[in-house]
Amino acid sequence: MKITRQEVLHVAGLARLELSEDEVDRMTGQLDAILTYVAKLDELETTDVAVTTHTQEVVNAFREDVVRPSLTRQEALANAPEQNGEAFVVPRVIG
Protein backbone atom coordinates (compact mmCIF):
# COMPACT_ATOMS: atom_id res chain seq x y z
CA MET A 1 0.00 0.00 0.00
CA LYS A 2 1.32 3.41 -1.01
CA ILE A 3 -1.26 5.29 1.03
CA THR A 4 -3.38 4.29 3.99
CA ARG A 5 -6.88 5.32 5.00
CA GLN A 6 -5.33 7.28 7.85
CA GLU A 7 -3.09 9.24 5.47
CA VAL A 8 -6.02 10.05 3.19
CA LEU A 9 -7.84 11.50 6.18
CA HIS A 10 -4.75 13.51 7.14
CA VAL A 11 -4.31 14.91 3.62
CA ALA A 12 -8.04 15.70 3.37
CA GLY A 13 -7.65 17.72 6.57
CA LEU A 14 -4.72 19.65 5.10
CA ALA A 15 -6.79 20.35 1.97
CA ARG A 16 -9.83 21.41 4.06
CA LEU A 17 -11.97 18.63 2.64
CA GLU A 18 -14.39 16.51 4.62
CA LEU A 19 -14.92 13.08 3.09
CA SER A 20 -17.75 10.67 3.80
CA GLU A 21 -16.82 7.13 4.94
CA ASP A 22 -17.64 5.95 1.46
CA GLU A 23 -15.46 8.56 -0.18
CA VAL A 24 -12.53 7.74 2.10
CA ASP A 25 -12.71 4.09 1.08
CA ARG A 26 -13.00 4.85 -2.62
CA MET A 27 -10.33 7.56 -2.60
CA THR A 28 -7.90 5.38 -0.66
CA GLY A 29 -8.13 2.66 -3.33
CA GLN A 30 -7.91 5.09 -6.25
CA LEU A 31 -5.10 7.18 -4.76
CA ASP A 32 -3.19 4.00 -3.99
CA ALA A 33 -3.48 2.89 -7.64
CA ILE A 34 -2.37 6.32 -8.87
CA LEU A 35 0.57 6.59 -6.44
CA THR A 36 1.65 3.04 -7.30
CA TYR A 37 1.63 4.05 -10.95
CA VAL A 38 3.56 7.32 -10.48
CA ALA A 39 6.27 5.42 -8.58
CA LYS A 40 7.35 4.56 -12.12
CA LEU A 41 9.38 7.78 -11.97
CA ASP A 42 11.77 6.04 -9.56
CA GLU A 43 13.08 4.04 -12.52
CA LEU A 44 14.83 7.24 -13.63
CA GLU A 45 18.09 8.47 -12.10
CA THR A 46 17.63 12.21 -11.62
CA THR A 47 20.18 13.18 -8.96
CA ASP A 48 21.93 15.70 -11.22
CA VAL A 49 18.89 16.82 -13.21
CA ALA A 50 17.68 20.38 -12.64
CA VAL A 51 13.98 20.92 -11.97
CA THR A 52 11.76 22.64 -14.55
CA THR A 53 9.05 24.82 -13.09
CA HIS A 54 8.71 27.12 -16.10
CA THR A 55 9.16 26.14 -19.73
CA GLN A 56 10.33 29.47 -21.12
CA GLU A 57 13.56 31.34 -20.48
CA VAL A 58 11.89 34.32 -18.86
CA VAL A 59 12.82 36.54 -15.95
CA ASN A 60 10.57 38.13 -13.39
CA ALA A 61 8.28 40.80 -14.81
CA PHE A 62 8.62 43.94 -12.71
CA ARG A 63 6.46 47.02 -13.03
CA GLU A 64 6.42 50.46 -11.47
CA ASP A 65 4.54 50.55 -8.19
CA VAL A 66 1.95 53.11 -9.19
CA VAL A 67 -1.69 53.47 -8.22
CA ARG A 68 -3.98 52.31 -11.00
CA PRO A 69 -7.73 51.91 -11.31
CA SER A 70 -8.94 48.67 -9.74
CA LEU A 71 -12.17 47.11 -8.47
CA THR A 72 -14.34 49.27 -6.25
CA ARG A 73 -15.24 47.86 -2.84
CA GLN A 74 -18.76 47.26 -4.07
CA GLU A 75 -17.51 45.27 -7.09
CA ALA A 76 -15.14 43.26 -4.93
CA LEU A 77 -17.93 42.36 -2.53
CA ALA A 78 -20.56 41.66 -5.20
CA ASN A 79 -19.99 37.89 -5.33
CA ALA A 80 -19.56 37.34 -1.59
CA PRO A 81 -21.89 34.77 0.00
CA GLU A 82 -22.16 37.17 2.93
CA GLN A 83 -21.01 40.78 3.29
CA ASN A 84 -22.04 43.90 5.15
CA GLY A 85 -21.30 46.56 2.55
CA GLU A 86 -17.81 47.08 3.93
CA ALA A 87 -16.28 43.64 4.42
CA PHE A 88 -16.67 39.93 3.89
CA VAL A 89 -18.54 38.30 6.75
CA VAL A 90 -17.39 34.90 8.05
CA PRO A 91 -18.33 32.76 11.06
CA ARG A 92 -16.89 34.05 14.33
CA VAL A 93 -13.14 33.26 14.56
CA ILE A 94 -12.38 34.47 18.09
CA GLY A 95 -14.82 33.35 20.76
Binding site: L44, T46, V49, A50, T52, T53, T55
Partner: peptide, 14 residues
Protein backbone atom coordinates in the same frame (compact mmCIF):
# COMPACT_ATOMS: atom_id res chain seq x y z
CA UNK B 1 9.89 12.08 -3.70
CA UNK B 2 6.94 13.31 -5.73
CA UNK B 3 6.79 16.96 -6.77
CA UNK B 4 10.53 17.55 -7.09
CA UNK B 5 11.08 14.23 -8.84
CA UNK B 6 8.30 14.98 -11.34
CA UNK B 7 9.76 18.45 -11.99
CA UNK B 8 13.13 16.84 -12.75
CA UNK B 9 11.50 14.38 -15.14
CA UNK B 10 9.87 17.40 -16.75
CA UNK B 11 13.39 18.59 -17.60
CA UNK B 12 14.17 15.22 -19.23
CA UNK B 13 10.98 15.50 -21.31
CA UNK B 14 11.97 19.01 -22.41
Amino acid sequence: AYYKKASQVRTLIK
